[in-house]
Amino acid sequence: MTKWHIAHLACIAAVIGVGLGAAPSAVAHERTHVVFPGESIQKTVDAARPGDTVLLASGTFHESVTVSTPGLTLRGMGRGTVIRPAAKKAADSCAKSGNGICVVGKKGRHVKGVSVAGLTVTGFAGSGVFAESTDGLTVRHVTAVKNGVWGIAQERSVRGVFRQNTARHNGDAGLFLANTIKAEEGAADTKGTVVAHNLLEGNRIGVTVRRLRNLTVADNLVTGNCAGVFVVGDENKPRAGALTVSDNRIERNNKSCPKTARLDALQGTGIVLTGTEDTLVTRNLIRENTGNSPLSGGIVVWKSFVGTTSERNRITGNVLEGNGPADLVNTDTAGKGNTFQGNACRASKPAGLC
């Protein structure tokens, strides 16, 4: 064993000691497996048992990793633990899809209680972290940077927790949550998923919530993207909505992104609600989001791109400053029951919403 390994083992032992010092004897059988750069994360994950921790030392690992063991923790030593694509793409589905870390269960049988924490995932053609069919997935202190599609993404999942992550300069959304992108389905109940205290910067969209219900997006810093927060629904039932966007700081999302097959060009957008119902947008600070996109503005209520109206959404108690063309924009005049109350702002389209 080299001096480098001995030093890292000493550091890792300290981390394990802090993490396990207060652990009750009932979980004493759970093991921590240490992986060093040059060793296979996937082999260690495959050998681990439910409840175990796979601890990655500092350094760079070149591979994609699939986790399907319930209760497993995949944890690095901080941003200095880096996962990048392998020089030669492996045959597993995670690598084939261009993703870095995949946490996957099966349709109708979710993998439960997995945690991913304390590492950087970068340079993947797809997503840094991609999860599907999970229950209680926790992603914390993960830095997802310069991935081709999403920084951190989850589909067909419930009770997820996404806290204190950084998603920068990813091709689409920094954080993407959806029922599924593979089929036309009604909005799914996430049973209380939480997106909180994340930094989302320089992506196409900071956070996208698509065809979901019952979740919270709160206390995030969203800046330098083409658009800050998108909450998206359509004609499928149940409708998207019944969720909360609160206490976020959303400012200067003025990067310019071209039109795509699904979406107009984006620039200068704070929060968009489109095709949603019963959504509460409250206590957000939304500043200096300006642009020439049809979706530009501080908070924008927009008729769904397939013609579905937004209904019974409440926009209340927000502070909006210097957004253009206006702080509050409502283009969905056919939508019923949308209310704008108690917001501190100067300009709206149509007039009278401030």
Rank of each mutant, 00 (worst) to 15 (best):
M1D: 14
M1S: 15
K3T: 14
K3V: 15
I6V: 15
I12V: 14
I12S: 05
A14V: 08
I16C: 07
V18C: 08
L20V: 10
V27K: 05
V27A: 13
R31I: 11
R31F: 08
H33D: 06
E39I: 04
I41G: 00
Q42V: 14
K43I: 10
K43Y: 11
T44M: 13
A47F: 12
R49H: 14
G51F: 11
F61S: 00
E63I: 07
S64R: 04
L72T: 04
R75W: 02
G76A: 11
M77L: 14
K88G: 12
A95S: 13
K96R: 12
I101G: 00
G105C: 11
K107I: 11
H110P: 09
S115V: 12
V116L: 12
G118I: 04
T120K: 04
G123I: 01
G123Y: 05
A125F: 10
A131H: 03
T134N: 03
D135G: 10
V139Q: 00
R140L: 15
R140H: 13
V142D: 00
A144R: 00
V145D: 13
N147K: 04
G148H: 04
G151M: 01
G151H: 01
A153K: 05
R156N: 12
S157C: 13
G160F: 01
V161K: 04
N165V: 10
N165A: 08
A167M: 06
H169K: 09
G174Q: 01
A178Q: 05
T180R: 07
T180C: 13
E185F: 07
A187C: 10
T190S: 00
T190H: 00
G192R: 01
T193Y: 05
E201S: 15
E201K: 11
N203M: 07
N203D: 06
G206W: 00
G206Y: 01
G206K: 00
V207N: 03
R211Q: 13
N214A: 06
L215Q: 06
N220D: 15
L221G: 09
G224A: 07
A227H: 06
F230Q: 08
N236I: 06
G241Q: 02
T244K: 07
R262P: 10
L273I: 11
T274Q: 11
G275C: 07
T279H: 03
T279A: 00
I286N: 00
R287D: 14
R287F: 15
R287Y: 15
T290S: 15
G291N: 11
N292H: 10
S293G: 09
L295E: 14
V300W: 09
V300D: 05
V300L: 14
K303D: 12
V306H: 09
T308H: 12
R312C: 06
I315A: 00
N318A: 03
G322T: 12
D327M: 12
L328C: 02
L328N: 01
N330G: 04
T331N: 11
D332G: 00
A334T: 12
A334Y: 06
G335K: 02
G337C: 10
G337Q: 07
R346W: 06
